[in-house]
Design a binder for these strands. Structure first.
Lengths: 218, 218
DNA sequence: GTCTATAAAGGGATAGAC
DNA sequence: GTCTATCCCTTTATAGAC
């Protein structure tokens, strides 16, 4: 009876079903993401996804019309998680901003989960051409843009040499990664040493960039 | 009769068979390479490879025990094609050497065939861990080593600032590629503009590197 | 060595009960 | 919406004739 006071008829009928359904969809997406990024698109079966999500295969098909559609949903869902916001304090030095931003960008790009999703998008490029562009725009392009905007200001303030801001941003990011992204994509056992390698590459990259771009303070 | 003079019995019996067999193996490898790099490992069927090589599937299995073995053979075969030899003339300027080497490396790494093989190796990293390492050692690592050796000499000659040669090599190569490798892997429609983008990235990269590393001539 | 034919298993997708 | 059971096709790999 008390239960009836807290649970309306609607809650007892349609609501629990819909709520449960939402959870199922979330579990399906999570399972699909794990399998697709772990084993690849073709090597992942709908059976495996259903099993990992603890639902029947028919339930998967009730929410996603087909395997390609589920894959697209996973990648799109990944969406805007690949942006590094760059908020420079007014009194912060150039070097300090670069180090902070460089570290965040490097950590994000070289994170195993990022590498895994990158791998599968690159692999399925011919089957899902639009997803590659989508990922590039949501990730690398926005990081570049963020940094280019900062460089525009730094050039106007006379902190760094005038050059195309976009070019400077691309070069800075390339220096932050060195060969680590390629190493990770190919799986050359950097995993254990990754944090150390990242830091070394970061410091050397900042040094190189500043030598090439820094202007003596007025 | 004349034919008999030029074709020994051995040629008429065993040789043609073995020669034909060699050709078949070559065709199988070529077909496998095309399919694997084009559609990916899982999406490529042994039937498709056999058909493209114009042999029966049983013939494929007569020469390669399984699909994984054929894949490994393809990647290994790719082998040492990814080295850029760096022969610097004695009287050649630093800038000229860098431009020549940078262009060759950039063209090699960004070639569609290289990108395609890179994609499939990265995608199959978990199933074939050793192939990723093999590719890195045969390709990027050797290019880095070649360049690092040159930088060692250039540092001793006082042409560039002293720094770890390996670090300088990695930074130079990163600057040569900018974001073009990532763009190509993801398929962001640079294909048409690629030669122009390569050249722009190359010049900007050399400029950046020289500003960071060049020492005034003694 | 090379072929045709086939075995054995797994995958995407759906029918139908609840 | 969710499940069980099933259809139908493709895939890897092999058997057996030549």
């Amino acid at each position: 009876m008390l239960v009836a006071l807290f649970m309306s008829p609607a809650t007892l009928t349609s609501r629990p079903v819909r709520s449960s359904s939402r959870e199922k969809i979330a579990r399906i997406l999570a399972a699909a993401r794990a399998r697709f990024t772990g084993a690849g698109y073709e090597a992942t079966s709908m059976d495996a996804i259903a099993a990992e999500a603890c639902v029947s295969k028919a339930t998967v098909y009730a929410h996603f019309r087909s395997k390609p559609e589920l894959f697209a949903a996973v990648i799109t869902d990944e969406g805007d998680q690949h942006l590094v916001p760059l908020a420079a304090g007014v009194h912060e030095s150039l070097e300090s901003v670069l180090r902070r931003f460089g570290r965040e960008a490097s950590e994000l790009v070289l994170a195993p989960s990022t590498t895994a999703i990158f791998r599968v998008i690159a692999a399925e490029r011919s089957r899902f051409p639009e997803l590659g562009k989508l990922f590039f725009e949501a990730g690398p392009a926005r990081i570049q843009g963020e940094l280019a905007d900062y460089f525009t200001g730094a050039m106007e303030r006379g902190e760094i040499r005038r050059e195309r801001p976009q070019t400077a941003a691309i070069q800075f990011l390339a220096l932050m990664l060195g060969d680590l992204q390629v190493r990770e994509l190919l799986g050359t056992e950097v995993a254990a040493d990754l944090p150390r390698m990242r830091e070394i590459t970061l410091e050397a990259g900042i040094d190189c960039f500043l030598r090439a771009y820094r202007l003596p303070a007025a």
